[in-house]
Design a protein around this nucleic acid. Sequence first.
DNA 1: GTCTATATTATGATAGAC
DNA 2: GTCTATCATAATATAGAC
Lengths: 188, 188
Amino acid sequence: MQAKQAIIQAARRLFYTRGFEKTSFSELAEAAGVPKGNFYYHFKSKDDVLKAVLEVRHGDISDALAKWSENIDTPELRLSRFVEMLTKDQEDLAHYGCPTGSLLTELGKKRGDLKPMVVAIMDQYLSFVAEQWRRLGYSQAKAQSLATRLLAHCQGAVLLAHAYEDPKLLVREVKSIKLWIKESLPKN
Amino acid sequence: MQAKQAIIQAARRLFYTRGFEKTSFSELAEAAGVPKGNFYYHFKSKDDVLKAVLEVRHGDISDALAKWSENIDTPELRLSRFVEMLTKDQEDLAHYGCPTGSLLTELGKKRGDLKPMVVAIMDQYLSFVAEQWRRLGYSQAKAQSLATRLLAHCQGAVLLAHAYEDPKLLVREVKSIKLWIKESLPKN
DNA sequence: GTCTATATTATGATAGAC
DNA sequence: GTCTATCATAATATAGAC
């Protein structure tokens, strides 16, 4: 039971830094300190390991967003906190890209029920962001449209930062996104 | 010599629709109508095939951008034409993602000289877009910053459209990008 | 130059001893 | 429940006949 958690944690990092397909059981076994024959007691396939990782990620993100909704006072500040993810994780993001975005492109061209699980994570982000604009007074449709745009800008910024391996690019884009958020607030 | 071109064309499509790593020589051979043992007469490795594909893509994009610079009258219209790529290829983009963006994430976590070749393609886009803003009167720094933002928005939009397999999302985002371009023109 | 047959290696997955 | 030994498969790559 402890081995299972060790595998999930090792997989979470390795699938992110090396990619899902390129991570082999051998690497995973070594990183988790578990002999590879033992995997199939805990998981029935490699896809199954990823499924477990995605469930953990989904839960973590859900918790984080709930906490922000609770602890941060205004929708505007919540949006700020959201984009600040890009600066807080700038090193990892510039080296390995966005965990969600990378998986989406990797699994996008694949069969199966894995992609929907990644899309579900993206959905969490999208509805959190959309909700903030709703609270600011926008219609559901307008809030959704602003949310899509914000998320697109974030994802694109990470992709470019990853391309040029430049964390500073993220810092600059976050500034520009925050400015755009201010401009997008409803005029009172 | 004709076989070589057939391989490159087949690889170009397959690397895009299925991904580079997931495309095997067997598939490539079948699609190109060439026995797989024959590959190594034309290319010394799989990476070498991708290199050839990237050279072709680089050339094609270079030609297209040059043509736009020549045939389209104003910088503003050139920027519009640039983002219209997203609507023209909306079906492919929603199904398979951006050819450049996908490769970036796939090769980003990999050794070697392949990633720089993809970054070079991104650079072509970036400098084309930046140049248009330069011509509109912005400083080099400001033009560069606007170009990064535009490209990020495009890449992010394609990623989301790919996630939700929704070509319409691209149509909506292109509208919003064009609006933003208008707003970003220098006030005379 | 073209193609067949094969080598080599690494993978995901199993069987079964303890 | 844990671990060793091994399987089956598929991949990239090569040797060598024509």
